[in-house]
Design a protein around this nucleic acid. Sequence first.
RNA 1: GCGCCUGUAGCUCAAUGGAUAGAGCAUUGGCCUUCUAAGCCAACGGUUGAAGGUUCGAAUCCUUCCAGGCGUGCCA
Length: 528
Amino acid sequence: MGAAKRMRTNPRQLAAEVLNGLELSDLAESIEIAGPGFLNIRLSPSFLSDQLTDSTLLAETKNPKRVVVDYSSPNLAKEMHVGHLRSTVIGDAVARTLELAGHTVIRQNHIGDWGTAFGRLLAFLDDVGDEAAQDAELSDIEALYVEASQKFESDLAFANRSRSMVLALQAHEPTAIAKWEHFMMLAQQHMSEIYSRLDISLQPQDTRGESAYNSTIAPLISDLQKRDDVLVESEGALCIFMPEFKNKDGDIQPMIVQKSDGGYLYHTTDLAALRYRGETLHADRVLYFTDARQILHFEMLFAASRLANIVEPGVMLEHHPFGKILGNDGKPFRTRSGDNILLRDLIDEAIDRATSLIHEKNPNLDDEQQDEVAHAVAVGAVKYADLSKNRLHDYTFNWDEMLAFDGNTAPYLQYAYARISSIFEKGNIDMGQCSEPPRLDTEVERQLAVHLLRFQEVVEQVVADAKPHYLCSFLYELTVRFMRFYEHCPILSEEPQIRDGRLTLCSRTAATLKTGLDALGIRVLTRM
RNA sequence: GCGCCUGUAGCUCAAUGGAUAGAGCAUUGGCCUUCUAAGCCAACGGUUGAAGGUUCGAAUCCUUCCAGGCGUGCCA
């Protein structure tokens, strides 16, 4: 119909012409024109069956790219909290999906590990004594920072020590750097623990924080200054003026690269990081996952990098923003006292809730199985609740809905996988050995088969748009179709040919569910 | 003020300019001596915030308005 629009003809008439020219008798059972000009092609059972006999779920891309994915990127003056959840979960799912599709993914955890907050923290660690600093637990980070901030407000001498600590860091003064490194080790341990519990694929070597660009900023600014049309001094600060960005007074809004006191801003570090990603990492695409408040920041960053040729023109720069997490009251999701919800507390609560639900639903699991199921269900539920929604919108965090185990939730998909596993276990059959062509005699089998063949296109859509909810919708719909099939078609009790064909359908469904959930960073379970 | 985003069933969410706007939850009613009932089947539920416009066709694109959120020079 798009073609009809361009050709300025009647879509139904064009459909008829196309239909006359089509020769699809080897794969289609029937073709008919419907509605305003759709061609409905009903694939023949033999074609579908042939497609499913091959166990390849999807073909890798013919055009592999080097893709830098910048996500999670917490500010580590604070313990990780719910504000870091969406970037971490969505970015990880997209990174995994890109890899699944055959692209080379370079994860970049652009953590906040530099700047004024660290001056406060390190000065505070000095005050509490080296021993206490050495012994500090990961969970102390938040408390230390809160105390340090309070002291910064109330204690002038401490505030001055904090500022001189920042200077000492920037000058790479050895004792200051040693303290900073010790602190960063704690922070990395903290991140690694959270990532591990959440099944996030980020590794310590993916961490490349703001501090990593400290030494490249001065050369960057110097290079920019060689082009007199880019950097302009204004009110003591070095700025890039781009006429498309206006401030509240209608004047051009500058992108400040160097503050009037000589300090650098997030714009500056991001420019240096972008240069590194182009020149050193040789990225074809750079993806950023941050909340929607940073839209303007990234528009300016990308525009400036084009203006100053920070990256090659062919490199695709993409900011993929997301909305807020809201509580049931429609306000930002926080504790009752108004604090950020820490991720370790969120994970603990998810596992507690999942454990009690599992205990109620299936008391026959032993303790070890129960723990495994509880973890997979809890983490899967939290991640899927986020991933299954269009990331551009705010979304409402609701424990009961994400752990309800019915509807479009992770546990529903995991349950389907467990049911399939159970069939193979009961029949003592190897899931990987199914090759009998399914007969697809019933409509529910047909519907399942047709859907399985769409996996490829859905993965490509996620790769193109960085929206994992496309994949969630696909997997949910796949599961619904499988559940119908499961309820309506007996398998193990059937005669061998029908039984084995249906086992092939089960096997392909299980493999697709596992591959798809893997791409989302969610575990499957053989029993639950 | 200007810019960006959002507004879809009671609730949580889908819908690549296409067919009668779809799911789940909730509510109501069915289905377990047979592969896990954490399931399946069915009913109920809509002026897509409002009004115009473009189009063969609009939740989707354009204009105006309403409501909410965010951003808007030295935080990130």
